[in-house]
């Protein structure tokens, strides 16, 4: 008997989602499907004896909609000989309930395996587990309703010793021709080994969301332009701002220099804290009041995230508002 717990799903029941726990009892063709009745949050014992074929427990949530959609939240597989495996992912962004990072940032995957056995009489399924890395691009979307069965197996390895493995990755391997705009997910899983009477079942998996690197461009003024009295509107185009970020445009006298704190343009700043990236365009027509001296000025777009402070775009223009009067002064007295 094993406890079935639903504490992880308690928040979704009241928001148009309904949770189901389905136990798939292996060993028959087809397997037997049993919906276990469990409170929104709580646990009970499964009364199915654990045999060689084992059982898979699936935690689903179904969204009420015109066409209902089901989401697989978690699975666990239990059998007489299957070892235990867990996967965790660490990123620099610790604010998200689901591990997430950016296309240019590192992450660490930790696997822990227990219950592996060795010896001649030990079933193959008890001797090792497989560790798999899947990657899947979201394309241009936010990944809503993607078919995760379409993920690509990137690489796999065998783990035949109990203990912990720590794998440090520098950047994501999600496919994409432009590495800055890659968006998608990586899934790291531990699977049991298929053997007579048992199938290869997922013991644990963890998914990492990967969002693109933000980019920006400035238009309206060209690099090296001279600004006099006419105020040329500035347009800032921002793409893929990180879900939790503060982005702004600032002005300062002089040529571009990192770490300069300038005047933030009030109409060109955005703080977000959401689940997906954001793209925006700012039109700024009123900024000449900040240009209080002649000479070169720099306008730049800066974004602040958990990954640091980054300059996304910049350009320098000249301000020249001095008036040169060409005239000749003469008096009538001299002529007398």
């Amino acid at each position: 008997m094993i406890p079935i717990t639903t504490a992880s799903a308690d928040s979704s029941q009241s928001e148009g989602y309904t949770n189901f726990i389905r136990q798939v009892i292996m060993g028959t063709t087809p397997p037997v499907f049993w919906d276990v009745t469990v409170p929104e949050s709580g646990e009970r014992l499964s009364l199915v004896p654990i045999d060689i074929a084992g059982s898979r427990y699936e935690l689903w949530t179904v969204k009420t909609a015109a066409v209902p959609i089901s989401y697989l939240l978690d699975t666990a597989y239990v059998s007489a000989y299957a070892p235990e495996g867990t996967v965790t992912i660490q990123t620099e962004d610790t604010d998200s309930p689901t591990p997430r990072t950016r296309a240019d940032r590192p992450f660490t995957v930790t696997t822990t395996v227990k219950g592996l056995l060795s010896g001649g009489n030990v079933p193959t399924t008890s001797k090792s587990v497989n560790f798999l890395r899947h990657v899947q691009s979201y394309g241009e979307t936010d990944g809503t309703n993607i078919d995760r069965n379409q993920a690509t197996l990137h690489s796999q390895a065998s783990i035949d010793r109990n203990g912990t493995n720590k794998l440090d990755y520098g950047v994501t391997a999600i496919p994409g021709s432009n590495r800055l705009t890659v968006r998608g997910e990586e899934r790291f899983s531990i699977y049991s080994i298929k053997e007579n009477g048992s199938s290869d079942e997922r013991l644990d998996s963890e998914t990492l969301l990967v969002w693109p690197v933000a980019t920006a461009s400035i238009s309206g003024i060209q690099e090296g332009d001279t600004v006099r009295f006419d105020e040329v509107p500035l347009t800032f185009t921002l793409n893929n701002l990180y879900p939790k970020s503060f982005t702004y445009a600032q002005l300062y006298p002089g040529t571009p220099k990192l770490d300069t704190m300038g005047q933030i343009l009030p109409a060109a700043q955005l703080a977000i804290d959401q689940n997906t990236p954001e793209s925006r365009q700012w039109q700024v027509g009123s900024y000449s009041q900040f240009l209080n001296e002649d000479g070169p000025w720099t306008v730049e777009v800066v974004t602040e995230t958990v990954f640091g402070i980054e300059r996304l775009a910049y350009l320098t223009f000249n301000v020249n508002r001095s008036i040169k009067v060409n005239s000749m002064i003469s008096t009538m007295e001299n002529e007398k």
């Binding site: 560790f131 798999l132 890395r133 995760r148 069965n149 690489s155 796999q156 390895a157 065998s158």
Partner: peptide, 13 residues
């Protein structure tokens, strides 16, 4: 992942 033992086989997913 190359620090672990290589594995081959079908994708269980």
């Amino acid at each position: 992942i190359l620090t672990l033992k290589p594995a081959e086989g079908d994708d269980p997913t």
